[in-house]
Design a protein around this nucleic acid. Structure first.
Lengths: 332, 332
DNA sequence: CATTTCTACTGTATCGTTACAGATTTCCCA
DNA sequence: TGGGAAATCTGTAACGATACAGTAGAAATG
C-alpha cells in the first residue's frame, strides 16, 4: 500500500480509503488508485487487516473425526470452497479428536478469534455449541437443526420426508414389515427420521420391526452381524429403510449372510451421499443427499450471518427425491 | 501479553522472550511467566506474530475439484489434521476450479505469503508447480512423485508394485489376457502403473489387451460403455487391473452389461481407497491405499521441510498389500 | 580498585492496515 | 466580503508480537 501511495503521490490513508470506496474520496482519485493497485497486483496483507480490525476472513469448518466414515467431508469441503472462492474468505478445517469435548474447538475459536464464522454439524436437539455461539453473538451455520427455540442459520436434509417416502415406496412394493436403520439417538435427525418413518407406517398401513441394537454410527461389522441375526429370525422384516449409505452396505451383507436375497425376500430404500450403491446394487432404491449443495448453502449462510442478515432468512431444507434407476446398458 | 507483563511486573519484551525460552532470561523468571501465562490461558495472537515475523502457522492443502470423484479428500484432510493437532499449524484448503491453471493457487500463496508450507497432489513427471516452489525455496510436499531430478519431500503409493502384484495374482488364477484401467497419461503414476503392469506381463507370462479409450479420470458412464464394448468383442480380456476404486465400479457394470460374470469370465484386482468394494463385491481382489496415512506422512513432511530437514529424508513410499477376503459371516 | 565481562532485563521501532481527528481548499450564501 | 459548510485529503496512533540495541548491576579479571 505504501508503494501505491508513493506511485500516486497520495497519502497512505487516502489509498486505504480509496480502495474501500469511502465517500470522502474523489471519484477520479479512486479510479487512479484502483488502476495502480491492479497494475502492481496489490493484495491486502491479511495479517495487517486482521490485527487492526479483528476481521480474520476465515470460515472454520468444525469436524468430528467420526465424520470420515460416511465420506461426507470431501463434498462438504468442496461445496464450501466453491462459494468462498468468490470471496476473501479462506476455509480452515478444525477437527476435534474424540467426541467427548465438542465445545473445545468452539471455545478455541471464540477465545482466540480464529475465524469470522463457523460451520458445525452432527447437531443435537439441545446443542451446547449453539447456545454458546449464540450467547457470544458469533456467526455460525449448522448442518442439521436444533430444538431449543433459538433461531439460527442451518441447512438440513428433510430426513422425515425421506423416511416417509421410503415407507410409501416399500408399501407400494407390497412390503408390510418394515425396519429402520436409524441415526444415533442423540442427534436431532434421529427423531426426524423416526417420526417420518412412523407416520409412513400409519398412513400407508405397515408395521414396524424393532431394530435398536445398532445405528448408523456403529461399525459396519456390528450392523451386519445384528442384521444377519434379525433376518435369520422369525421376526424378519421384508422392507428396509437405511439412514445411511454405508449402513446400507452392511445391511446388504447381513441379508446375504442370512441367505436371503435383496429384491426377493426384502426391498430396501437408502439415503446415499454418492452413486456407488446405485452402480453396484441397483436393486436398492436410493434418495440422494447432496452434501456438496449442503456445503454451498452453509457457506452462503455463514457469510450472510457475518453480513448481518437475519438468521431466519438463512435456513434451507433440501427435499429428498428418488433417483431414477440406473440404466444398465446404453441400448436398454 | 501486556497483562502478563503487568501481573509479573516485568517488561513486555521479557515476557515474550521468557515464553520462547530465550537464553538470556533467568530460570526463575521463566517459570513465573509460564505459570501466569498458563493461569490466564494466554494464546499468542496469530495476526501479531504473522505480521511481525511473517510466520503464518498455516499449511495449505491445494486441491483440484476433480479430486472429489475419488472421495480422496476426506481421509486426506483427516490425516493431515491429525498431525497438525499437536502443532500450532492450521490447515487451510485452497481449491482451484478447472484444472486449467494449476499454478494459480501456488502463485497466490507465494505472492501473498498465505502459508508456511503447501501440500499438492496429482503430480506430473515434469511439474511446473514443483519447479516454482523449489525456485522460491518454499516448503512443500507432494502426493505422488516427479521426474525432474529435483529432490523434494513426497509420499506415494507404490503403483508400479501394485500393478505388478495384481498381474501375478491374476496369472495365478489362470488368467492370461489382461487389461489395465490406467491413470490419465499426464500424471506421473500413469507410467509407474503401466510399467509395473508390463513387467508383470513379462515376468509371469501374460499378454496385454489394449484399453486406452478411457482412463480413471473419465466419467463412470464412459468407462462402463467402453468396457462393455471391449467385453463384448472377440478381444475380451479375462483379467482386469483397475487403477481406481470408482473405476472398478464402472468396469463391473460394463462386464455385467456385456452379460459376462465377474469371477467366471474374468477376475479383477483393484486399488481401493475404502472398504466399499470389498463389502459389495468380495469377488474383486483389492489392495488398499490408505489415504489417511498419506495425509499424515505429507503433513509430517511439510513440517519437516519448514523446520529445515533435508528433503531426501522426507520421502516415503507405501507398499501395497492384498486385503484379506471379507469374512462373509461370523461363524465362517 | 579500575575495568572488563557476563547476566538479566527493557525501551523503541516495526510489520500492514485502519480509526480518528484534523487540515486544506473550494464553494456558497448572506 | 466574511464565514461556514462541503469536499477532499492526510498524519498519527494503535492492533500484538518480536528484533535489535541497549542498560544496570553483579561478578570476574588483572
Amino acid at each position: 500500500m505504501k508503494t501505491i501511495a508513493f506511485m500516486t503521490g497520495l497519502g497512505i490513508t487516502t489509498v486505504s480509503r480509496a480502495l474501500k470506496d469511502a465517500p470522502d474520496i474523489g471519484a477520479e482519485t479512486k479510479e487512479r488508485v484502483r488502476l495502480v493497485a491492479k497494475q502492481i497486483g496489490y493484495q491486502p496483507n491479511r495479517a495487517g487487516v486482521r490485527l487492526r480490525t479483528g476481521k480474520t476472513n476465515v470460515i472454520s469448518l468444525v469436524l468430528t473425526l467420526e465424520e470420515e466414515i460416511m465420506g461426507i467431508t470431501s463434498p462438504m469441503v468442496i461445496g464450501i470452497t466453491e462459494i468462498l472462492a468468490g470471496t476473501p474468505y479462506h476455509l480452515v478445517v478444525t477437527p476435534y479428536s474424540s467426541s467427548k469435548d465438542p465445545l473445545g474447538p468452539i471455545r478455541y475459536i471464540l477465545d482466540t478469534g480464529a475465524a469470522d464464522g463457523v460451520i458445525i454439524s452432527r447437531m443435537e436437539p439441545n446443542d451446547p455449541r449453539v447456545t454458546l455461539l449464540t450467547e457470544r453473538q458469533f456467526p455460525f451455520a449448522t448442518h442439521g437443526r436444533t430444538e431449543m427455540g433459538i433461531v439460527h442459520p442451518y441447512h438440513d436434509f428433510d430426513n422425515g420426508r425421506f423416511a416417509y417416502e421410503a415407507v410409501r415406496k416399500l408399501v407400494e412394493r407390497g412390503r408390510r414389515r418394515l425396519v429402520l436403520l436409524e441415526p444415533p439417538p442423540h442427534l436431532t435427525f434421529h427423531s426426524h427420521m423416526r417420526t417420518g418413518f412412523e407416520h409412513g407406517l400409519k398412513d400407508f398401513g405397515a408395521e414396524s420391526v424393532s431394530f435398536h441394537q445398532v445405528n448408523i454410527d456403529y461399525s459396519l461389522v456390528a450392523i451386519r452381524d445384528a442384521f444377519e441375526k434379525l433376518m435369520g429370525s422369525s421376526d424378519a422384516p421384508d422392507g428396509i429403510v437405511s439412514g445411511s449409505g454405508s449402513g446400507a452396505i452392511a445391511l446388504i451383507a447381513g441379508i446375504e449372510s442370512a441367505r436371503k436375497k435383496l429384491g426377493e425376500d426384502a426391498d430396501m430404500v437408502s439415503k446415499v451421499p454418492s452413486d456407488f450403491l446405485r452402480w453396484l446394487r441397483p436393486e436398492v432404491m436410493t434418495m440422494y443427499e447432496d452434501i456438496r449443495v449442503a456445503g454451498r448453502e452453509l457457506a452462503k449462510a455463514v457469510i450472510g450471518r457475518i453480513e448481518g442478515k437475519p438468521p431466519e432468512t438463512l435456513q434451507s431444507l433440501s427435499q429428498p427425491e428418488f433417483q431414477p434407476p440406473m440404466a444398465r446398458s446404453p441400448e436398454a
